[in-house]
Design a protein around this nucleic acid. Structure first.
Lengths: 128, 128
DNA sequence: TCTTTAATTAACCAAATGGTTAAATACAAA
DNA sequence: TTTGTATTTAACCATTTGGTTAATTAAAGA
């Protein structure tokens, strides 16, 4: 039996979401909607060293959200939003949950199912 | 001047995305679409200790993706998908980028703008 | 009151993350 | 060939993250 597990799973969705979980990286993506940009250009608005930006770009690249090419001594980045589609598709499955009316209905069904939710307890033992 | 900065910014979007960046937490959310569940029930399918699950739930709670209440000795969790709407809204701004035809058009515009992209270089010095 | 069940908290650990500065690399230009 | 510019790599550091086990808390039930 293993004592300490760590291993962050590198599935596509996790990579995409964790790439998006940083405001600097989201700002970079936003900037790239106006077209390809060099690393220096991308770094300029951020109070941060070049290597820091370089690391953010590597994260974005590994998640597939940007693509880097080569043009003389510049490494222009361009956005590749495809992984966002995957992410949005996944989230769509919860749309009904964030749409008010349905939430209310569900609330009601839950009350019906659980019977005397305040009094008897054990409300959450039903499986599936 | 500060030497080492770390501070992960806790804006809503970052919280949401980083909560979603873990497969265990996504699985928990998925499970909760079938209604409220106790911590033990949520833990059951995962080969992981209770405290580990407890921590995941805390992350989900702080991101606003779940809500925990109290019922006897159980702490039933229910999904609160509202933050997902915010996240999806943010992503929608990139929809045109992941829709093929537009990508192609943009590619073409980029070529036009930059002139001799192979030969002269300095392609990426244009601002805005 | 004592025991059992559900869950959290505490203390620990290893790896990942997000930053730094300094050095190395790659290409262009003089 | 040397110099300058763009970028990455290396080595470091602190904090965060995701897990563990052991102890604690909270309520139910005998």
């Amino acid at each position: 039996m293993v004592k300490y597990k760590t291993t962050m799973s590198p599935d596509r969705l996790s990579l995409t979401f964790s790439a998006l979980a940083d405001p600097t990286r989201r700002a970079i993506l936003a900037r790239l909607t106006n077209g390809a940009r060099s690393v220096t250009e991308l770094a300029e608005p951020h109070d941060m060293s070049m290597p820091a930006i370089s690391k953010h770009l590597r994260v974005l690249e590994r998640s597939g959200l940007i693509e880097r090419s080569r043009e003389a001594q510049w490494r222009p980045c361009r956005i590749k939003a495809a992984p966002l589609k995957e992410a949005v598709d996944w989230m769509e499955q919860y749309r009904r949950h964030w749409e008010q009316s349905l939430d209310r209905l569900e609330e009601y069904l839950k009350v019906l199912q659980s019977g005397k939710p305040k009094a008897k307890g054990k409300t959450n033992e039903r499986k599936k």
